[in-house]
Design a protein around this nucleic acid. Structure first.
Lengths: 186, 186
DNA sequence: GTCTATACCAGGATAGAC
DNA sequence: GTCTATCCTGGTATAGAC
Protein backbone atom coordinates (compact mmCIF):
# COMPACT_ATOMS: atom_id res chain seq x y z
CA UNK A 1 0.00 0.00 0.00
CA UNK A 2 1.28 3.42 -0.91
CA UNK A 3 2.68 5.51 1.92
CA UNK A 4 0.29 8.39 1.22
CA UNK A 5 -2.66 6.06 1.72
CA UNK A 6 -1.26 4.61 4.92
CA UNK A 7 -0.84 8.15 6.21
CA UNK A 8 -4.42 8.97 5.30
CA UNK A 9 -5.69 5.83 7.03
CA UNK A 10 -3.82 6.64 10.21
CA UNK A 11 -4.80 10.32 10.15
CA UNK A 12 -8.46 9.58 9.50
CA UNK A 13 -8.69 7.23 12.45
CA UNK A 14 -6.96 9.79 14.66
CA UNK A 15 -9.27 12.61 13.58
CA UNK A 16 -12.40 10.51 14.04
CA UNK A 17 -11.38 9.53 17.55
CA UNK A 18 -9.48 12.56 18.88
CA UNK A 19 -10.62 15.46 16.73
CA UNK A 20 -8.61 17.60 14.30
CA UNK A 21 -6.75 19.47 17.03
CA UNK A 22 -6.26 16.33 19.08
CA UNK A 23 -3.58 14.63 17.02
CA UNK A 24 -0.25 15.56 15.48
CA UNK A 25 2.18 14.38 12.85
CA UNK A 26 4.10 12.78 15.71
CA UNK A 27 1.18 10.39 16.31
CA UNK A 28 1.11 9.27 12.69
CA UNK A 29 4.88 9.03 12.76
CA UNK A 30 4.77 6.68 15.75
CA UNK A 31 2.00 4.53 14.31
CA UNK A 32 3.59 4.05 10.90
CA UNK A 33 7.24 4.07 12.00
CA UNK A 34 8.02 6.84 9.59
CA UNK A 35 9.52 10.25 10.42
CA UNK A 36 7.61 13.51 10.53
CA UNK A 37 9.42 15.02 7.53
CA UNK A 38 8.39 12.00 5.49
CA UNK A 39 4.79 12.82 6.23
CA UNK A 40 5.37 16.44 5.27
CA UNK A 41 6.75 15.16 1.98
CA UNK A 42 3.34 13.69 1.14
CA UNK A 43 1.19 16.33 2.85
CA UNK A 44 3.14 19.59 3.23
CA UNK A 45 0.78 21.04 5.82
CA UNK A 46 -1.80 19.70 8.21
CA UNK A 47 -4.43 21.67 6.32
CA UNK A 48 -3.46 19.88 3.09
CA UNK A 49 -3.78 16.58 4.93
CA UNK A 50 -7.28 17.58 6.05
CA UNK A 51 -8.22 18.43 2.48
CA UNK A 52 -7.03 15.05 1.22
CA UNK A 53 -8.87 13.34 4.07
CA UNK A 54 -12.22 14.86 3.32
CA UNK A 55 -11.92 14.35 -0.43
CA UNK A 56 -11.25 10.66 0.08
CA UNK A 57 -13.99 10.37 2.71
CA UNK A 58 -16.60 11.85 0.38
CA UNK A 59 -15.65 9.43 -2.37
CA UNK A 60 -15.66 6.41 -0.13
CA UNK A 61 -18.91 7.36 1.54
CA UNK A 62 -20.57 7.88 -1.84
CA UNK A 63 -19.33 4.44 -2.90
CA UNK A 64 -20.70 2.82 0.27
CA UNK A 65 -24.01 4.56 -0.30
CA UNK A 66 -24.05 3.25 -3.86
CA UNK A 67 -23.74 -0.27 -2.50
CA UNK A 68 -26.83 0.42 -0.41
CA UNK A 69 -28.64 1.46 -3.58
CA UNK A 70 -27.40 -1.56 -5.52
CA UNK A 71 -28.92 -3.92 -2.95
CA UNK A 72 -32.25 -3.34 -4.71
CA UNK A 73 -34.01 -3.24 -1.35
CA UNK A 74 -37.12 -1.17 -0.72
CA UNK A 75 -36.83 2.49 0.22
CA UNK A 76 -37.49 1.85 3.90
CA UNK A 77 -34.83 -0.85 4.10
CA UNK A 78 -32.32 1.31 2.23
CA UNK A 79 -32.76 4.04 4.84
CA UNK A 80 -32.05 1.49 7.55
CA UNK A 81 -29.02 0.13 5.69
CA UNK A 82 -27.76 3.67 5.19
CA UNK A 83 -27.89 4.19 8.95
CA UNK A 84 -25.85 1.01 9.20
CA UNK A 85 -22.94 2.90 7.62
CA UNK A 86 -22.94 5.22 10.62
CA UNK A 87 -23.33 2.36 13.07
CA UNK A 88 -20.36 0.56 11.51
CA UNK A 89 -18.29 3.70 11.83
CA UNK A 90 -18.84 3.74 15.58
CA UNK A 91 -18.33 0.00 15.87
CA UNK A 92 -14.86 0.51 14.36
CA UNK A 93 -13.05 1.72 17.48
CA UNK A 94 -15.63 4.24 18.59
CA UNK A 95 -15.12 6.50 15.58
CA UNK A 96 -17.61 9.20 14.68
CA UNK A 97 -18.28 10.69 11.24
CA UNK A 98 -15.26 12.56 9.88
CA UNK A 99 -17.50 15.40 8.75
CA UNK A 100 -19.15 15.61 12.16
CA UNK A 101 -15.71 16.17 13.64
CA UNK A 102 -14.80 18.70 10.94
CA UNK A 103 -18.03 20.55 11.61
CA UNK A 104 -17.11 20.91 15.28
CA UNK A 105 -13.52 21.89 14.49
CA UNK A 106 -14.45 24.09 11.52
CA UNK A 107 -12.76 27.16 12.98
CA UNK A 108 -9.38 25.41 12.81
CA UNK A 109 -9.79 24.39 9.18
CA UNK A 110 -9.19 26.18 5.87
CA UNK A 111 -12.21 27.35 3.91
CA UNK A 112 -11.94 24.60 1.30
CA UNK A 113 -12.34 21.94 3.96
CA UNK A 114 -15.29 23.75 5.51
CA UNK A 115 -16.98 23.95 2.13
CA UNK A 116 -16.30 20.29 1.45
CA UNK A 117 -17.82 19.43 4.84
CA UNK A 118 -20.94 21.39 4.00
CA UNK A 119 -20.94 19.71 0.60
CA UNK A 120 -20.81 16.28 2.20
CA UNK A 121 -23.90 17.05 4.24
CA UNK A 122 -25.66 18.47 1.18
CA UNK A 123 -24.95 15.19 -0.64
CA UNK A 124 -26.39 13.15 2.21
CA UNK A 125 -29.48 15.35 2.50
CA UNK A 126 -30.16 15.00 -1.19
CA UNK A 127 -29.80 11.23 -1.18
CA UNK A 128 -31.96 10.76 1.92
CA UNK A 129 -34.60 13.13 0.53
CA UNK A 130 -34.75 11.08 -2.66
CA UNK A 131 -35.24 7.81 -0.82
CA UNK A 132 -37.87 9.38 1.43
CA UNK A 133 -39.75 10.56 -1.67
CA UNK A 134 -39.56 7.04 -3.05
CA UNK A 135 -41.01 5.81 0.25
CA UNK A 136 -44.00 8.04 -0.24
CA UNK A 137 -43.18 11.13 1.79
CA UNK A 138 -44.87 14.14 0.16
CA UNK A 139 -42.45 16.38 -1.76
CA UNK A 140 -43.12 19.32 0.54
CA UNK A 141 -41.65 17.40 3.47
CA UNK A 142 -38.74 15.40 2.07
CA UNK A 143 -36.22 18.19 2.60
CA UNK A 144 -37.00 18.78 6.26
CA UNK A 145 -37.37 15.07 6.98
CA UNK A 146 -34.03 14.29 5.32
CA UNK A 147 -32.32 16.96 7.39
CA UNK A 148 -33.89 15.58 10.55
CA UNK A 149 -32.80 12.02 9.73
CA UNK A 150 -29.26 13.13 8.97
CA UNK A 151 -29.07 15.25 12.12
CA UNK A 152 -30.29 12.31 14.18
CA UNK A 153 -27.63 9.99 12.75
CA UNK A 154 -24.81 12.45 13.39
CA UNK A 155 -26.17 13.18 16.86
CA UNK A 156 -26.53 9.48 17.63
CA UNK A 157 -22.80 9.09 17.06
CA UNK A 158 -22.16 11.86 19.61
CA UNK A 159 -24.42 10.18 22.16
CA UNK A 160 -22.78 6.83 21.54
CA UNK A 161 -19.36 8.39 22.03
CA UNK A 162 -20.45 10.14 25.22
CA UNK A 163 -21.64 6.84 26.57
CA UNK A 164 -18.24 5.29 26.07
CA UNK A 165 -16.38 3.03 23.70
CA UNK A 166 -18.40 0.35 21.94
CA UNK A 167 -18.66 -2.75 24.12
CA UNK A 168 -20.66 -5.50 22.43
CA UNK A 169 -23.35 -5.93 25.05
CA UNK A 170 -24.03 -2.20 24.95
CA UNK A 171 -27.06 -1.64 22.76
CA UNK A 172 -26.59 0.13 19.44
CA UNK A 173 -27.65 3.75 19.83
CA UNK A 174 -27.29 4.58 16.13
CA UNK A 175 -29.45 1.72 14.89
CA UNK A 176 -32.05 2.35 17.58
CA UNK A 177 -32.34 6.03 16.67
CA UNK A 178 -32.53 5.18 12.97
CA UNK A 179 -35.27 2.61 13.53
CA UNK A 180 -37.30 5.06 15.60
CA UNK A 181 -37.03 7.76 12.96
CA UNK A 182 -37.78 5.55 9.99
CA UNK A 183 -40.94 4.43 11.76
CA UNK A 184 -41.90 7.98 12.69
CA UNK A 185 -41.12 9.67 9.38
CA UNK A 186 -42.70 7.18 7.01
CA UNK B 1 -18.55 39.80 38.46
CA UNK B 2 -16.05 37.46 40.04
CA UNK B 3 -12.92 36.70 38.03
CA UNK B 4 -13.55 32.95 38.16
CA UNK B 5 -16.93 33.46 36.50
CA UNK B 6 -15.53 35.72 33.82
CA UNK B 7 -12.92 33.07 33.07
CA UNK B 8 -15.63 30.42 32.82
CA UNK B 9 -17.71 32.61 30.48
CA UNK B 10 -14.77 33.18 28.19
CA UNK B 11 -13.64 29.56 28.27
CA UNK B 12 -17.14 28.24 27.60
CA UNK B 13 -17.57 30.40 24.54
CA UNK B 14 -14.16 29.33 23.26
CA UNK B 15 -14.88 25.62 23.78
CA UNK B 16 -18.29 25.85 22.13
CA UNK B 17 -16.83 27.53 19.07
CA UNK B 18 -13.33 26.06 18.72
CA UNK B 19 -13.43 22.79 20.66
CA UNK B 20 -11.53 21.78 23.78
CA UNK B 21 -8.19 21.43 22.00
CA UNK B 22 -8.76 24.55 19.95
CA UNK B 23 -8.19 27.19 22.60
CA UNK B 24 -5.59 27.99 25.24
CA UNK B 25 -5.16 30.01 28.40
CA UNK B 26 -3.55 32.65 26.18
CA UNK B 27 -6.91 33.22 24.44
CA UNK B 28 -8.70 33.77 27.74
CA UNK B 29 -5.82 35.94 28.88
CA UNK B 30 -6.17 38.19 25.83
CA UNK B 31 -9.94 38.42 26.08
CA UNK B 32 -10.04 39.33 29.77
CA UNK B 33 -6.80 41.32 29.92
CA UNK B 34 -5.52 39.12 32.69
CA UNK B 35 -2.29 37.10 32.72
CA UNK B 36 -2.10 33.35 32.26
CA UNK B 37 -0.83 32.68 35.81
CA UNK B 38 -3.89 34.51 37.14
CA UNK B 39 -6.07 32.01 35.32
CA UNK B 40 -4.03 29.15 36.76
CA UNK B 41 -4.68 30.62 40.19
CA UNK B 42 -8.42 30.02 39.73
CA UNK B 43 -8.18 26.83 37.64
CA UNK B 44 -4.83 25.12 38.21
CA UNK B 45 -5.10 22.91 35.12
CA UNK B 46 -7.06 22.95 31.91
CA UNK B 47 -8.72 19.73 33.03
CA UNK B 48 -9.92 21.43 36.21
CA UNK B 49 -11.30 24.25 34.08
CA UNK B 50 -13.19 21.70 31.97
CA UNK B 51 -14.65 20.15 35.11
CA UNK B 52 -15.86 23.52 36.36
CA UNK B 53 -17.27 24.30 32.92
CA UNK B 54 -19.38 21.20 32.67
CA UNK B 55 -20.63 21.43 36.25
CA UNK B 56 -21.86 24.95 35.65
CA UNK B 57 -23.29 24.05 32.26
CA UNK B 58 -25.36 21.22 33.73
CA UNK B 59 -26.75 23.50 36.41
CA UNK B 60 -27.59 26.28 34.01
CA UNK B 61 -29.14 23.98 31.47
CA UNK B 62 -31.28 22.37 34.16
CA UNK B 63 -32.41 25.82 35.24
CA UNK B 64 -33.31 26.80 31.66
CA UNK B 65 -35.21 23.55 31.28
CA UNK B 66 -37.07 24.31 34.48
CA UNK B 67 -38.21 27.61 32.98
CA UNK B 68 -39.63 25.65 30.07
CA UNK B 69 -41.55 23.54 32.58
CA UNK B 70 -42.76 26.55 34.52
CA UNK B 71 -44.35 28.02 31.39
CA UNK B 72 -47.26 25.66 32.01
CA UNK B 73 -47.50 24.99 28.30
CA UNK B 74 -48.70 21.68 26.87
CA UNK B 75 -46.28 18.80 26.41
CA UNK B 76 -45.93 19.37 22.70
CA UNK B 77 -45.16 23.04 23.10
CA UNK B 78 -42.65 22.31 25.87
CA UNK B 79 -40.74 20.00 23.53
CA UNK B 80 -40.62 22.80 20.98
CA UNK B 81 -39.52 25.34 23.60
CA UNK B 82 -36.87 22.93 24.81
CA UNK B 83 -35.46 22.77 21.27
CA UNK B 84 -35.42 26.55 21.41
CA UNK B 85 -32.65 26.27 24.01
CA UNK B 86 -30.47 24.60 21.40
CA UNK B 87 -31.46 27.07 18.70
CA UNK B 88 -30.54 29.98 20.98
CA UNK B 89 -27.17 28.40 21.65
CA UNK B 90 -26.36 28.44 17.95
CA UNK B 91 -27.79 31.91 17.50
CA UNK B 92 -25.27 33.11 20.10
CA UNK B 93 -22.20 33.32 17.88
CA UNK B 94 -22.59 29.94 16.23
CA UNK B 95 -22.01 27.99 19.44
CA UNK B 96 -22.87 24.34 19.71
CA UNK B 97 -23.76 22.39 22.85
CA UNK B 98 -20.84 22.21 25.29
CA UNK B 99 -21.53 18.55 25.88
CA UNK B 100 -21.61 17.82 22.18
CA UNK B 101 -18.11 19.27 21.95
CA UNK B 102 -16.97 17.34 25.02
CA UNK B 103 -18.35 14.14 23.51
CA UNK B 104 -16.23 14.66 20.39
CA UNK B 105 -13.15 15.62 22.41
CA UNK B 106 -13.71 12.99 25.09
CA UNK B 107 -10.31 11.39 24.57
CA UNK B 108 -8.60 14.60 25.66
CA UNK B 109 -10.64 14.92 28.84
CA UNK B 110 -10.31 13.39 32.32
CA UNK B 111 -12.75 10.64 33.28
CA UNK B 112 -14.80 12.87 35.57
CA UNK B 113 -15.62 15.19 32.69
CA UNK B 114 -16.52 12.26 30.43
CA UNK B 115 -18.86 10.91 33.08
CA UNK B 116 -20.44 14.30 33.59
CA UNK B 117 -20.99 14.57 29.83
CA UNK B 118 -22.71 11.21 29.78
CA UNK B 119 -24.69 12.33 32.84
CA UNK B 120 -25.83 15.47 31.05
CA UNK B 121 -27.23 13.42 28.19
CA UNK B 122 -28.89 11.01 30.62
CA UNK B 123 -30.60 13.99 32.26
CA UNK B 124 -31.87 15.26 28.93
CA UNK B 125 -33.08 11.83 27.84
CA UNK B 126 -35.00 11.46 31.07
CA UNK B 127 -36.65 14.83 30.82
CA UNK B 128 -37.61 14.43 27.18
CA UNK B 129 -38.94 10.92 27.83
CA UNK B 130 -41.13 12.30 30.61
CA UNK B 131 -42.62 14.99 28.41
CA UNK B 132 -43.16 12.51 25.57
CA UNK B 133 -45.05 10.25 27.99
CA UNK B 134 -47.17 13.22 29.02
CA UNK B 135 -47.89 13.85 25.34
CA UNK B 136 -49.27 10.35 25.04
CA UNK B 137 -46.35 8.33 23.68
CA UNK B 138 -46.67 4.75 24.96
CA UNK B 139 -44.24 3.88 27.76
CA UNK B 140 -42.50 1.26 25.64
CA UNK B 141 -41.38 3.92 23.18
CA UNK B 142 -40.57 6.99 25.26
CA UNK B 143 -36.94 5.96 25.83
CA UNK B 144 -36.06 5.40 22.19
CA UNK B 145 -38.04 8.44 21.06
CA UNK B 146 -36.32 10.67 23.61
CA UNK B 147 -32.92 9.46 22.49
CA UNK B 148 -33.84 10.14 18.87
CA UNK B 149 -35.07 13.66 19.67
CA UNK B 150 -31.94 14.44 21.64
CA UNK B 151 -29.69 13.04 18.93
CA UNK B 152 -31.49 15.12 16.32
CA UNK B 153 -31.04 18.33 18.33
CA UNK B 154 -27.32 17.74 18.87
CA UNK B 155 -26.90 16.75 15.24
CA UNK B 156 -28.84 19.77 14.04
CA UNK B 157 -26.26 21.97 15.76
CA UNK B 158 -23.50 20.19 13.82
CA UNK B 159 -25.31 20.69 10.53
CA UNK B 160 -25.95 24.33 11.33
CA UNK B 161 -22.27 24.81 12.14
CA UNK B 162 -21.19 23.07 8.95
CA UNK B 163 -23.39 25.39 6.97
CA UNK B 164 -21.70 28.45 8.39
CA UNK B 165 -22.12 31.08 11.02
CA UNK B 166 -25.68 32.17 11.79
CA UNK B 167 -26.78 34.89 9.37
CA UNK B 168 -30.32 36.02 10.06
CA UNK B 169 -31.84 35.22 6.66
CA UNK B 170 -30.47 31.71 6.89
CA UNK B 171 -33.29 29.45 7.99
CA UNK B 172 -33.11 27.90 11.45
CA UNK B 173 -31.96 24.30 11.08
CA UNK B 174 -32.44 23.43 14.74
CA UNK B 175 -36.05 24.64 14.95
CA UNK B 176 -36.90 23.03 11.64
CA UNK B 177 -35.52 19.66 12.73
CA UNK B 178 -37.32 19.93 16.07
CA UNK B 179 -40.64 20.77 14.41
CA UNK B 180 -40.31 17.82 12.04
CA UNK B 181 -39.53 15.42 14.88
CA UNK B 182 -42.25 16.64 17.19
CA UNK B 183 -44.77 16.14 14.39
CA UNK B 184 -43.40 12.71 13.54
CA UNK B 185 -43.00 11.36 17.06
CA UNK B 186 -46.31 12.46 18.55
C1' DG C 1 -5.36 37.77 43.60
C1' DT C 2 -2.40 39.45 40.32
C1' DC C 3 1.87 40.14 38.38
C1' DT C 4 6.97 39.09 35.92
C1' DA C 5 9.87 35.72 34.62
C1' DT C 6 10.80 31.40 33.23
C1' DA C 7 10.88 26.29 32.48
C1' DC C 8 9.65 22.65 29.65
C1' DC C 9 7.82 20.18 26.06
C1' DA C 10 5.14 19.50 21.89
C1' DG C 11 3.40 20.95 17.43
C1' DG C 12 4.16 22.33 12.68
C1' DA C 13 7.41 23.01 9.49
C1' DT C 14 12.12 23.49 6.77
C1' DA C 15 17.10 22.51 5.07
C1' DG C 16 19.79 19.54 3.13
C1' DA C 17 22.13 14.84 3.01
C1' DC C 18 21.41 10.13 1.33
C1' DG D 1 11.07 9.02 -0.73
C1' DT D 2 13.19 8.89 3.53
C1' DC D 3 16.28 10.34 6.77
C1' DT D 4 18.96 13.61 10.68
C1' DA D 5 19.12 17.86 12.48
C1' DT D 6 17.16 22.00 13.54
C1' DC D 7 13.98 26.18 13.99
C1' DC D 8 10.33 28.70 15.79
C1' DT D 9 6.22 29.16 18.02
C1' DG D 10 2.88 28.33 21.25
C1' DG D 11 0.74 25.58 25.09
C1' DT D 12 0.74 24.19 29.95
C1' DA D 13 2.46 24.99 34.07
C1' DT D 14 5.44 26.73 38.15
C1' DA D 15 8.32 29.95 41.25
C1' DG D 16 8.26 33.70 43.68
C1' DA D 17 7.63 38.90 44.20
C1' DC D 18 4.03 42.46 45.10
Amino acid sequence: MATADRILDSAQALVQVRGYNGFSYADISAELSITKPSIHHHFPTKAALAEALIARYRERFAAARKEVDDDMAGARQRLVNYAGLYAETFADGGRICLCGVFAVDAESLPVEVRQATDGFFADQRQWVAGVLAEAGVPATRTGAAAEAYLAALEGALLLARAHGQPDGNDRDVVRSVAATLVDALL
